[in-house]
Design a protein around this nucleic acid. Structure first.
Length: 914
RNA sequence: GGGGAAUUAGCUCAGUGGUAGAGCACUGCGCUGGCAGCGCAGGGGUCAGGGGUUCAAGUCCCCUAUUCUCCA
């Protein structure tokens, strides 16, 4: 059955699933191909995976943002376990040690291969199940097998596995528990040891699927047989059982982990029998739309297919990354996006698409994956706008490059050559971003060759430089066990109490658990219950005091969440001795806490107001809630106008005047979502979330401290709005007492200014306008008076003209006249003289002398050069100078020798005449 | 993380170490029956910011900021 281009792949796929048939791509369009295997769509595979592991006790966590949170070692989330690193190295302990997810990931290191091979992508989804110190090899291997063969119904006989050469445990489980014949297991060395430097690491086991069993069985299985094209890796099971220590040694991990990853795109290509990952329901609708836009057909020409695939791949990456708040820019993450987009636009040109089109594909990506990743649907309009603007920008870059190249080619031709130097081609590419293949096309058109060798050489030098400068960064920490040794329970009572009695449960000093601490010790301690809020969600920690009866006073300086989830007080013992199990009275600095709650609730109101005024694309990118001010970073493309700032400020204050009740409730995450709560960046999704609702205005998930009603905030005032990164703005604001003090200070400044202007406060702006106009007029008047004075001076000077060697000559001292004045007078005198030499000198203060020499052009031919003359004159006062033959200037230092220098000028002129 | 480049009038950009410019836009006057109408005159500058070299820096050097771009 022949299938034309116009029918739409989406329709094809819909009918496919119902018919339980699938297609294989052929060079002439698509045709159906019936077979007795289940055709499964990507959404179903994803869903079945997480549900399968949920049935094995795993908690399903949603995909984390592509932008790493609190992890400077990563540009992007690049693996399913990347957002879970904090659990792997033990710096945080998860509620449930079994986790499963489908994680969006970005990797751009193999970008050159994307579109050319069957399975390289810049963005992919990784299905994973994880054990944090819970189950290990003997559970995970059979589960993986069960999922593949029973849930997805793959043919058992087509699987092969690799294990690490020394991993006998894994071999035993694969052969005896799962029942795979030993000849389908390959022991390899480097490939099967997962190690990324310092931190947890361990052997792994990879599961391969034989795509061409009809080729017969290999004598010895190895994944690289048949150039690695026959056996497709579908799943990697990593058994992290060692710590890779800072000194390079390996030690057994106290808590062993499991980290697995199965590529969704690969599973799709197998289950849908797609020749490549692109021939699946994840990509075909995008390719189909691109085909429609370009009028070209997929699967008719290999070069065009590369273009179709690159575009389909890159638009996914760009859509998702922009959706996660990373915007195109000239550096870091943003630059990755920019380059991907440009690369796609270049391939668009291959298909004959010359105008911005990538943005129109955002909708298709949303259609395909929006159900699991709703952010790309809700932010669609914003994503489209960003991409369209970026496409337009690139067209400008291309046009600029074309004109630069045209200039260079003209020069090359002018020199009678027909080769474009490699360094020129490289300069266009390196500095101006003009693609080398475009340079090549244009050169060919004009019959000019490119020195490709020189270009490559320059590029390689650039690479060397970059490599040499590369430093290793540690991506994970070595697992610690300190907190595992503490078996304690601590309650936070600070939402309602400012002080409480409690028992000291543990004291940590110098990185060790101790029994007591003495005056002056810097310690960390846990209490059975505490009113101290630990820094979290942007809200700073409380400070305060802990009294241990009469025995000791401890000052709390900072409070952090420890890995076990409890509040760890960092403190100094002010006096006495504190022992474990002492009874104590803990009290926070209450005034400070109240100021913090004002700022925190105000932050929520601000967030909502920003979304109302600027649009729904405003997403929190960071927040700091302190006692004296609040800081809120959010995604937004341009600076806010004064009107927008005023509008936001007014909306927040209106909520304050209405004195809305702030309700705080704990509820299930689904109930919170149903209420319309805004989930914050970095928020941890437990079963129960805390919802903070300010009137009907703002609803957010938040674990922080808030006022009881908005009226307590008192007053909200925005202090500044600025840029923090490309596409990220920062607003700083004050509330309550801080706002009052801010306004008082502003008022004082204004009153002060009015006083100095001797004007009423209301008249200050008009008063300044008047003064500025005045200054301008005075300036003009000075200019004109200076001109008149100079003219008068010129008149006087003309009378002093004498003759030296038959040439009209003038040397004069004009103290107090600046360089500009001297030059103007000299010009004037020169204009009055048909022929002559003018030498002017002036002392500037006590340690500086200026000279100007003017010579009429006719005398230049007679040996008198103004530059030479002025230089020698100035030399008398210890200076030098130069200029044009007809006008030159110089400076000197010794004011006392000014007259001497001027006197010498006549002799010099006489000597120069020929 | 490491390179290259740019930043001058409202906009687009020239500018040899020696008097800061052009085109467009703006204001005024005059001419003119339009589609970028013409002429004359005028206003408009922290030469990105800060240091340094120099008698003298928009120009050379260093630092910072912003933007463009390549490599990793």
């Amino acid at each position: 059955m022949e299938h034309g281009n116009q029918g739409g792949t989406a329709n094809v796929l819909n009918s496919l699933s119902s018919l339980e048939c699938f297609f294989i791509p052929a060079t002439r369009g698509f045709f159906y191909y019936l077979k007795g295997v289940t055709h499964m769509k990507s959404a179903e595979i994803r869903q079945r995976f997480v549900k399968f592991f949920e049935s094995k006790g795993h908690e399903i966590v949603p995909s984390a943002s592509l932008v790493p949170y609190n992890d400077p070692s990563l540009l992007w989330i690049n693996a399913g376990m990347a957002p879970l690193k904090k659990f792997f190295d033990g710096s945080e302990i998860p509620k449930n040690p079994r986790i499963t997810n489908s994680q969006k990931c970005i990797r751009t290191n193999d970008i050159e291969n994307v579109g050319k091979t069957a399975r390289h992508h810049t963005m992919f989804e990784m299905l994973g199940n994880f054990s944090i110190g819970d189950y290990f090899k003997k559970e995970v291997i059979p589960w993986a097998w069960e999922f593949l063969t029973e849930e997805l119904k793959f043919d058992k006989d087509r699987f092969y596995v690799t294990i690490h050469t020394e991993d006998d445990d894994a071999f035993e489980i694969w052969t005896n528990v799962v029942g795979i014949p030993a000849d389908r297991i390959c022991r390899t060395e480097e490939d099967n040891f997962w190690d990324i430097g310092e931190g947890p690491c361990g052997p792994c086991s990879e599961i391969f699927y034989d795509r061409n069993p009809e080729m017969g069985k290999d004598d010895v299985f190895h994944p690289d047989n048949h150039n690695g094209e026959r056996y497709l890796e579908v799943w990697n099971l990593v058994f992290t059982q060692f710590n890779h220590n800072a000194d390079g040694s390996y030690t057994e991990l106290p808590k062993k982990n499991i980290d697995t990853g199965a590529g969704l795109e690969r599973l799709c290509s197998l289950l849908q029998n797609g020749e490549t990952n692109f021939d699946t329901d994840l990509f075909l609708p995008i390719i189909e739309e691109t085909a429609r836009l370009s009028g070209k057909q997929y699967h008719t020409d290999l070069n065009l297919d590369v273009a179709f695939k690159v575009i389909a791949d890159h638009i996914r990456t760009v859509t998702f990354s922009v959706g996660d708040g990373a915007l195109p820019s000239n550096e870091g993450r943003g630059y990755v996006i920019r380059r991907l987009l440009r690369r796609a636009v270049r391939y668009g040109k291959v298909l004959g698409i010359e105008k911005p089109f990538m943005y129109t594909l955002v909708k298709i990506v949303g259609d395909i994956m929006g159900e699991y990743y709703p952010e790309i649907v809700t932010k669609r309009e914003f994503i489209e706008r960003v991409i369209k603007a970026e496409e337009e920008r690139f067209h400008v870059t291309l046009a600029d490059g074309e004109s630069l190249l045209a200039d260079v080619l003209e020069r090359v031709k002018g020199e009678g050559k027909n080769v474009l130097p490699g360094e020129e081609a490289f300069r266009l590419y390196d500095t101006y971003g003009f693609p080398i293949d475009l340079t090549e096309d244009i050169c060919v058109e004009q019959g000019i060759e490119i020195d490709r060798e020189g270009f490559e050489k320059a590029l390689n030098e650039q690479r060397q430089r970059a490599r040499a400068a590369r430093k290793d960064v540690s991506t994970m920490s070595v697992q610690t066990e300190l907190y595992d040794e503490l078996d304690i329970r601590s309650n936070f009572v600070g939402y309602s109490e400012a002080a409480t009695s409690a028992q000291v449960l543990a004291i940590i000093s110098g990185g060790e658990i101790v029994e007591e601490a003495h005056e002056g010790d810097e310690i960390a301690l846990f209490l059975s219950q505490t009113p101290f809020y630990a820094e979290s969600g942007g809200q700073v920690a409380d400070i305060g005091l802990i009294h241990v009866g009469e025995a000791a006073i401890v000052q709390v300086l900072d409070v952090q969440k420890a890995p076990n989830g409890y509040n760890l007080h960092k403190a100094r013992v002010l006096s006495g001795t504190v022992n474990v199990l002492d009874e104590a009275e803990a009290s926070i600095d209450y005034e400070r806490r109240v100021a913090i709650t004002r700022n925190h609730t105000a932050t929520h109101l601000l967030h909502k107001a920003l979304r109302q005024v600027l649009g729904e694309h405003v997403a929190q990118a960071g927040s700091l809630v302190g006692p004296d001010r609040l800081r809120f970073d959010f995604s937004h493309l341009s600076g806010m106008t004064a009107e927008e700032i005023a509008d936001v400020e007014r909306r927040v204050n209106e909520q304050i005047w209405q004195n809305e009740i702030v309700e705080i409730n704990e509820m299930g995450i689904d109930d919170a979502k149903a209420l319309g709560a805004m989930a914050l960046f970095g928020e941890k999704y437990g079963d129960v979330v805390r919802v903070v609702k300010a009137g009907d205005y703002s609803i957010e998930l938040c674990g922080g401290c808030h006022v009881r009603s908005t009226g307590e905030i008192g007053l909200f005032k925005i202090v500044s709005e600025s840029s923090i990164a490309a596409g990220v703005r920062r607003v700083e604001a004050v509330t309550g007492k801080g706002a009052y003090e801010f306004v008082v200070e502003r008022d004082r400044l204004l009153t002060d200014a009015a006083g100095k202007l001797k004007a009423n406060v209301n008249d200050v702006p008009s008063r300044i306008d008047n003064l500025q106009n005045n200054i301008k007029e005075l300036g003009k008047e000075i200019e004109s008076l200076k001109g008149k004075l100079a003219a008068g001076e010129v008149k006087n000077l003309v009378e002093q003209i004498r003759e030296v060697g038959g040439v009209p000559f003038l040397a004069a001292k004009l103290d107090g006249v600046d360089m500009d004045g001297l030059r103007a007078i000299a010009e004037d005198l020169k204009a009055r003289l048909a022929s002559g030499v003018v030498v002017l000198g002036a002392a500037q203060g006590t340690d500086k002398v200026n000279f100007v020499v003017a010579v009429t052009k006719d005398l230049n031919g007679k040996g008198i050069q103004a530059g030479k003359l002025v230089k020698e004159v100035a030399a008398v006062t210890g200076g030098g100078g130069g200029g044009r033959p007809d006008l030159a200037q110089a400076g000197g230092k010794d004011v006392s020798k000014l007259q001497e220098a001027l006197d010498k000028a006549a002799d010099l002129v006489a000597g120069m005449l020929v």
